[in-house]
Each structure stands twice: as C-alpha cells, then as structure tokens.
Design a protein around this nucleic acid. Sequence first.
DNA 1: GTGGATGCAAACCGTTTGCAGAGGT
DNA 2: ACCTCTGCAAACGGTTTGCATCCAC
Lengths: 148, 148
Amino acid sequence: MTTTRPSPPDAATLDYETLLREAGVRITRPRRTILAILRDHPDHPDALEIFRRASAVDPSISLSTVYRTMRLLEEKGAIHRHAFGNGPSRFEQADGAHHDHLIDLDTGDVIEFSSERIEALQDEVARSLGYEIVFHRLELYGRRRRRD
Amino acid sequence: MTTTRPSPPDAATLDYETLLREAGVRITRPRRTILAILRDHPDHPDALEIFRRASAVDPSISLSTVYRTMRLLEEKGAIHRHAFGNGPSRFEQADGAHHDHLIDLDTGDVIEFSSERIEALQDEVARSLGYEIVFHRLELYGRRRRRD
DNA sequence: GTGGATGCAAACCGTTTGCAGAGGT
DNA sequence: ACCTCTGCAAACGGTTTGCATCCAC
C-alpha cells in the first residue's frame, strides 16, 4: 500500500506539450497555460478552479476553453477525470502509476493510495463473473480517527 | 463473493410504507406508487425512468415529486443513490446486504457483487492512513470475457 | 493561407425550488 | 382543520455547443 505519488511531477521529464504536439494537437496559449497548472498543482481541481488559476495567468481565457481542453486531454490520456460525491468533475494529471482515492469528509482533502491486493481481488471478482475489467472506480469516504 | 441479492424483494416482509409512516412520513399516492416500483423492479432506474414507470400507473404524477421522493427515501435510508459513469443518479431499494457493482460497458447491465475480503482490505488501508471509512464507492467497469 | 481553436452567449441536461392549491392524517 | 405534499413552471449549476473571429502551423 502506498500513499505518495510514485514520482513528484517533474516538468523536465514529463513533457505533455511535446507528446500532444506529436499527436497532432496544436499547442495554443490556453492549452499551454492549463497544462502548466495541471503540472504544477498536484491536487484535484475542478474546471472552475482551473479556470480561476488560468485567468490569473491569462485573463482572456474562457471557461468553455477549459472544458474543451479537459475533454481533449482526457481523450488523449493526459489527465484523469473524477466525480467525487455528486460534485463537478475534478481532474489530475495522468502521470505516475494508478491509484485510488480516500476523501476526507470533513475537510474535502483527497488522499491517494493504491493497493495491489485490492486490485487483484477486483480482477478475481470480475473474472468469476465472466468479465474483464476495463477500469474501475474506488473511493473511500471517511474521517480522521480520533487518537484516544 | 456473492453475486445474487441476499433476499429477493418480498413485498410482505419488507414493508417500507409502514416503516415510513412510523417515521412520520405521509404515505401519499405518488409515494406509494414509487415505493411499489422500487419494490417490484430489482434494477437501478434513474429518476426519469421511475417517472415513466410511475406515469403508467398514475399519469398525474410529476417529475419533481419523483425527485423529491427519491431524496426523502434516501434520507430515510430506504434507498441508495448511485452515480455510475457521469450519468444521472440511479436508485435501488436499500433492503438486503451491502454490495458493490460491476457495470457492463457494452450493455449497461449492472451486476451486484460483494467481497468481504475487499471490504476488509479497504478498512485496513483507511486505518493505516489514520482514517475510518464512513462509506465507499466501488464500481468495476468491464466487458464479458470472450470464451475461446 | 488554412483549418483547427477560441471567446462569447445561448442552449443543454439533470435537478431543485417558489408558489398556490390539493390531500393525508 | 391542520400542515404536508403536490404539480407546475421557473431557476439552478455544471457542461456543451453554434457561430464568427483568431491564431498555430
């Protein structure tokens, strides 16, 4: 079980701009701005929050461009989209290994973790039902245990 | 690992009408209709689908009443609300034991399962992070394995 | 220069809400 | 009779889209 990101976001090693350009995606100013935000903040912002952060850098950016860009990046596999609770979609850069999320019900904090054993059991369950897992969603919602 | 509902919905043994009335909830015609639909269909309909089914029985029912009733029933613990993928909320009667869901990506079918071992590991993970799980969401998305 | 990307505003979808009237207890 | 619940229509929040313009290639 691990709780830290496998590798801290490293601007030098993870060059989505180049990757995307090679995939035929035009690197425009809004896209560059959004990519930088996702690279530099390892949290899980929603579209509006990304818009706010982007506006601070480039006030001419529009919310629809944020949404369009998030969809593009998701299609290209550069980000993951989550829907915690019933709230808006929240995003994170897709670099690093797969992980699941524990959401702090009191603070809203999102803690990443991964468990090979749980993954293995999920596969086992699916297989026994005649299925092959394409992706899954595992979210734990809880509160800090009071130290007594 | 179990894949069937612990006990098939049994109108006689599971009397939510009485339960709700005792909780001070008025049993009106729309509510009775909706409760019957949830009792008789063991699938996971969304509000619009419940509205359609209810309209067939009582054409005067309104969609807002369906939404209001679903919220009420959720608060009273009579139903569970799910949000598969990014679609609308889908509901199921809360009777029977806890289970998770496997969603067939090709057909949209929802298969219920439960795994004590996965639950135990989830608790273990949460505990090791200093948390206590209040509830969780586990969904497997997959396709039928081709028999070769 | 050209086709894709943008900003804006309007549309969209699932859901909630204000209100006056209906109906359960 | 009381007070809750209902239907209706309007509002809502998050997201998508049509269009004319702009800009990366």
